[in-house]
Simulated scan of single mutants.
Amino acid sequence: MNTIEQQLWDYIDGNLNEIQRKNIEEKIKTDAAVKLQYEELLNLNAAFSEMEIDEPSMSFTRNVMESVALEPAPISLKTKVDTRIIFSIGSFFVLSILALLGYIFYNSTFTMPDFGKYFTSNFSLDKYITPTAMYVFIGFDIIIGLIFMDYFLRRKLNQRD
């Protein structure tokens, strides 16, 4: 659609401002080709306005919904993965890691430093296992046990209802 035709449609529809409307009116008066095109568009617009808009029947929606309901439901695509492929890929990586570890162990020398000279421990459990620590430990265990019993009994009660 060229610009003059678009301008003529806007003029017919009344979508132009005052300056543009005056310019189009001037073109229609002075140019015979524009005047002929304007008259054709007016006739076309009149024909469109005389046409009656077709409406679908009252049962259109029902008919469409029934035809959709008759269509088979799409099934989900279920693919079966061949487990041999998964196991072969997994075994390849396991063998590669084992080969790499074997190469590392074969080419390394295992010498352990003497830690006995430098490391002495004087570890006494009597400093850490005090009566207070034991009471805290036992109290914590009792609380955890009560929470578990509450959960267990509530589950049993809900299964019965």
Results as ranks from 00 to 15, higher is better:
34 V>K: 03
21 R>M: 07
42 L>W: 00
25 E>D: 12
32 A>V: 08
43 N>Y: 05
46 A>P: 00
22 K>P: 02
48 F>Q: 11
42 L>I: 13
49 S>I: 07
44 L>F: 08
51 M>P: 01
32 A>I: 07
19 I>M: 01
46 A>K: 07
49 S>G: 09
25 E>A: 15
35 K>T: 03
42 L>H: 02
18 E>A: 06
28 I>L: 11
23 N>D: 15
34 V>W: 03
47 A>K: 14
25 E>H: 11
21 R>L: 04
50 E>V: 12
54 D>C: 07
28 I>V: 10
46 A>F: 10
53 I>M: 13
14 G>P: 04
36 L>Q: 08
37 Q>N: 12
35 K>Q: 09
26 E>M: 05
18 E>L: 09
15 N>D: 06
45 N>C: 00
46 A>R: 08
53 I>S: 15
45 N>Y: 11
27 K>D: 14
32 A>Q: 10
35 K>W: 02
14 G>A: 14
36 L>D: 10
49 S>W: 08
25 E>M: 09
20 Q>P: 04
41 L>W: 01
49 S>H: 14
54 D>Y: 11
39 E>T: 03
42 L>V: 14
52 E>M: 14
44 L>M: 10
53 I>Q: 12
35 K>D: 03
44 L>P: 00
34 V>Y: 04
30 T>K: 09
24 I>P: 02
47 A>D: 07
24 I>A: 04
52 E>K: 15
51 M>D: 10
53 I>A: 15
14 G>C: 07
39 E>I: 07
40 E>I: 01
31 D>C: 06
45 N>V: 01
18 E>I: 05
36 L>F: 08
23 N>S: 09
29 K>E: 12
24 I>L: 08
20 Q>V: 09
54 D>L: 15
43 N>K: 11
47 A>W: 11
38 Y>S: 07
25 E>S: 15
40 E>A: 06
35 K>E: 08
31 D>M: 02
54 D>K: 13
15 N>R: 11
53 I>W: 10
39 E>P: 00
24 I>E: 05
46 A>T: 10
24 I>C: 04
27 K>W: 06
26 E>Q: 12
25 E>Q: 11
54 D>Q: 14
41 L>H: 01
52 E>Q: 14
19 I>S: 05
53 I>P: 07
34 V>F: 04
22 K>E: 11
39 E>M: 02
31 D>S: 13
44 L>W: 06
40 E>N: 03
51 M>N: 12
16 L>W: 06
23 N>I: 10
35 K>L: 09
48 F>D: 04
42 L>M: 05
19 I>H: 01
41 L>M: 12
24 I>W: 05
38 Y>A: 02
28 I>M: 03
